[in-house]
Simulated scan of single mutants.
Amino acid sequence: MENELYSIGKVGEICKITKKALRYYDEMGILSPDKVADESGYRYYSKKNLLSVPIIKYYKQSGFKLDEMRGFLEGKTYDFFDKSFRKKIDELKELEREINLKIRSVKDWHDLIVEAQMVIENNVSNVAIKYIDSRTLTFLEQDFKYDYMDSIINIEFNNYIDSINNAITGPVIICFPSFEDKINRKCSKMKIMQETILKCKEEESIEFGGCIVAACYHIGSHETINETYKKIQTWTEEYGYICSEESYERYVTDYWTTKNVDKFVTEVLIKVRREN
């Protein structure tokens, strides 16, 4: 049995590996046949060589590339193994961080799509009082010119996020210093805010929420959002609430998600308190 040789087909059958993969391992100097027939060119492997296949599979499963395996299969020192494995652990941890970031980004975006779908399907457009949990966002103060697309898909803000070595997730939120100025097209300033994946420095952060707000979803174009502001004004006056000056527009779905403005969903939020 020790001297028995196995054809490439038999090795493939026993080890559940393709002939193509075995030929590639030979080209890479990872696993070469013990014998190649002169006339036919058939490849034959010893039992000892055949047993290298599970080891190669395990290294591959662990994330090692073929050229990285060569030193392991050559029987290098434990010091070589130690350094190589530590390096691979660091690489995989970085890969894990990148994957988790992508999962978080996709999940948060998907949550917004589901929220918008539910709002549209159920025509949720009534004013409601609710508590907004406090959270830390990053922000950038900018001029506002009533160009919603430019304000929401905000190149300057995205460049700023890159400059602080961070990444954003969740909805864009814009704070307007005076909702009455916003309604009357007199608003010239805004504060764009969004959640970051990594923790921000104190000077890059702003607290959002931790308060009671009058909230109302606006379905459709941002150009008609004044209708929702007026609805909030009327409702709060009727039920004895006083609105603060600031307002927030939380863009659930917008130009980032769809080109159909009729499917845009924006949540308008205004801090309120009861009249004395």
Rank of each mutant, 00 (worst) to 15 (best):
K19M: 12
K20Q: 12
A21Q: 12
A21K: 13
Y24G: 01
Y25A: 04
E27T: 15
I30K: 01
L31F: 04
L31T: 02
L31V: 03
P33V: 03
D34S: 10
K35E: 06
V36S: 06
V36P: 01
A37D: 12
A37C: 08
D38L: 04
G41I: 04
G41C: 03
G41W: 07
Y42S: 00
S46M: 03
S46E: 03
K47D: 01
K48F: 00
S52M: 15
I55L: 15
I56T: 03
I56M: 04
Y58D: 12
Y59I: 01
Y59Q: 03
K65P: 02
L66H: 01
L66W: 01
D67M: 08
R70T: 00
R70K: 14
G71I: 06
F72Q: 02
L73Y: 02
G75M: 06
Y78Q: 10
D79G: 11
F81D: 01
S84M: 13
R86M: 13
R86L: 14
I89L: 13
D90T: 09
D90H: 15
L92M: 10
L95N: 11
R97E: 14
N100F: 11
R104M: 10
S105N: 10
V106R: 07
V106Q: 06
K107M: 05
W109H: 12
H110I: 07
